[in-house]
Computed example of a mutant assay.
Amino acid sequence: MTTRRAALTHVMHAALTTCAGGLSLAAHADLAGKPQPDTRSTVPNFVRALLRGTPRLIGQHRFTYWGFEVYDASLWSSTAFAPDNWAMQPLVLELRYLRDFKGADIAQRSMEEMQGQRPLSAAQQQSWSGVLQSLLPNVRNGERITGVYAPDKGMQLLHQDRLLGEVPDAELAKRFFGIWLAPETSQRQLRQQLLAGAQQ
């Protein structure tokens, strides 16, 4: 059971992630989850509090792995969203988990996903791993981790409505959100669904 749970942890996601849980390569992932209801007219209060302007749901998707439901991901922005320029726009990414995960597993998988985008230096690996390990909590079924991305500034991570901490490292924040949004992500169908409403 411990091995299966660790294998399911993908980050993040926090992470943010976040965050993903412990999933393997996209070739082995089942991303054909049922689309979630369109909630553009019912913006959660916590999203309104995190984004300036009028928040708008860009996309959402239920992430599954070999039939196991992992989390529901939702992406919000308050600007006219351009997918090709996602890293220059304020974002809120919510991951509502559908099973229990350890924070250490989420952090480890997040590092693997960021390394997969582009190789990290030894200094980045050591520093960023420490940051994520210190911030990402254990999560239980039904709980959410929310990442708030500020272009060229960094990010904040929240567990439920509690602030876990701020990360004033713009490159780490970009790579972390890139787990879901970068063209190099291993989860391209998930990215497609999160960006589905960008042109509407």
Rank of each mutant, 00 (worst) to 15 (best):
T9L: 04
C19E: 05
C19K: 02
G21P: 06
H28T: 13
D30E: 11
L31M: 06
K34H: 12
D38C: 14
R40I: 01
T42Y: 04
T42S: 09
T42C: 08
P44T: 11
N45Q: 13
R48W: 08
R48F: 04
L50C: 01
G59D: 00
H61V: 05
T64D: 09
Y65I: 10
E69Q: 06
E69M: 03
D72S: 03
D72K: 05
S77P: 08
S78H: 15
A80F: 11
A80W: 08
D84S: 15
W86E: 01
Q89D: 09
P90R: 03
L93D: 05
L93K: 10
E94N: 15
R96G: 04
Y97R: 06
R99Y: 07
F101H: 00
G103A: 02
D105R: 04
I106W: 01
Q117S: 02
Q117T: 08
L120T: 13
A122D: 03
Q124F: 12
Q124G: 14
Q125N: 12
S127G: 03
W128T: 01
W128M: 00
S129Y: 09
V139P: 07
G142M: 04
E143H: 06
V148Y: 08
Y149E: 11
A150H: 07
R162V: 11
L164P: 05
P168M: 14
P168E: 00
E171Q: 15
E171G: 00
R175G: 01
R175V: 02
F176P: 00
P183T: 05
S186L: 13
R188K: 15
R188Q: 10
L190P: 00
L190A: 10
Q192M: 08
L195A: 00
G197N: 15
Q199V: 00
